[in-house]
Amino acid sequence: MNVFRFAGDMTHLISILVLLLKIYTTKSCSGISLKTQELYAVVFVTRYLDLVTDFISVYNTVMKVVFISSSLAIVWCIRRHKVVRRSYDKELDTFRHWLLVGACAVLALVVHEKFSFQEVCWAFSIYLEAVAILPQLVLLQRSGNVDNLTGQYVFFLGAYRAFYILNWIYRYYSEQHFTRWISCVSGIVQTALYADFFYYYFISWKNNSKLQLPA
């Protein structure tokens, strides 16, 4: 564990807390893409199958349980909570996300490190995580105005990926640890998807103005 990896995990955790805070305090999920949240739930469930087969550390186990349970809870809130679900922007959140699931499943069946159930699921979850933010970014762009907590949620999610890249570079030099190329390529793609968002986020931060994305 190095400082970049820890910062990455913490920004990931903060992003989820910010999202829960938004839903809890405003009793609203406007601006939040259910499609993206469903994809994250699928990502965590398929990636953390090793919870039942391998023990790495208490930290690792706790984080995995937190990620799986929080993502399921968020999906539940948007779909079923009697107040929260009323604010769901259904008409704006039309991304055909199951196509992404299908494409990533095919890719994982073709490109993986080892042909085993767990390894194919792991590769699938890495591919899917890389593109899971797309419905959210499309929703934000369509709605134009982005409220503060939603903007911060996406910002922390992007920061998490950026820290993971620094972590891989650090591990390469300090531990001669080669991060698997599937992770590296997907991680770079995932981070790049945030580039546009980051650009507008920093402009609004610099000007101390509300975050607006161009149509």
Partner: peptide
Amino acid sequence: SYESEIHDEL
């Protein structure tokens, strides 16, 4: 290189 099957990152 593919060293072990354990994924130590989240």
